[in-house]
């Protein structure tokens, strides 16, 4: 997913769309397994390191949805067709902040925490990992509002602070594993079994 979105950001759209069609045609439905279903939230300006995503999956989780800059955030809002192209592009930026609020924009039309809870419920994610880029002030300021709502909704979550360079895989995995263990232990075993079937 990351690769698909990231490449779409830099490639010629027509070329990318053609390739994307091939990818979509090649997809088959996969039966649901017992991996813990997670939502990734955050990373507002750049892509998380691929090793980080791999480390999360290695712990036994599957990412079912996200609001990352190089993920859903990018494809969440279309450019309105017709009219002045430049205005349409500008409109798309404004619209995107309403459909998927970004804390770098001081806007009040919609609230990120509402949107987050809505999509978590829609995807059936069992937990959320908040990926916070170190020194991202808007995210640091907004995070407690997300946390408050997730706690109110009883959605387990984990905050991981990331850096541009370097990734302490071992520490990350310990934290992710602890989250998964917490999700496992608070989920009655029979429910897990039902999911498996």
């Amino acid at each position: 997913m990351q690769a698909l979105v990231k490449s779409s950001m830099v490639m010629d759209k027509e070329e990318h769309s053609a390739l994307l069609r091939q990818v979509v045609d090649g997809l088959a439905e996969v039966p649901r397994d017992d991996r813990v279903r997670l939502h990734l939230s955050g990373h507002l300006c750049h892509a998380p390191r691929p090793e980080l995503l791999a480390a999360i999956e290695e712990c036994g989780a599957i990412v079912v949805d996200d609001d990352l800059f190089t993920g859903t955030r990018y494809i969440t809002t279309d450019v309105p067709e017709g009219g002045d192209p430049v205005e349409a592009l500008a409109q798309r930026y404004l619209d995107r902040d309403a459909t998927l609020p970004c804390p770098t924009r001081v806007k009040h039309e919609s609230d990120w925490e509402d949107e987050l809870v809505r999509v978590v419920e829609a995807s059936g994610a069992q937990g959320v990992i908040v990926l916070m880029v170190r020194f991202c002030e808007p995210h640091m300021l907004y995070y407690p509002e997300l946390r408050k709502r997730l706690n109110e909704q009883g959605i387990p979550h984990l905050l991981l602070e990331t850096e541009h360079e370097g990734l302490p895989v071992e520490t990350v995995q310990t934290r992710v594993e602890a989250l998964l263990e917490r999700i496992h232990r608070s989920t009655p075993p029979h429910r897990t079994l039902e999911v498996t079937r």
């Binding site: 002030e137 640091m140 300021l141 995070y143 946390r147 905050l159 602070e161």
Partner: peptide, 12 residues
């Protein structure tokens, strides 16, 4: 306790 991390502007 409210959730602000240590790297956030300490004035704020």
């Amino acid at each position: 306790e409210y959730g602000y991390v240590g790297e956030l502007c300490s004035y704020a």
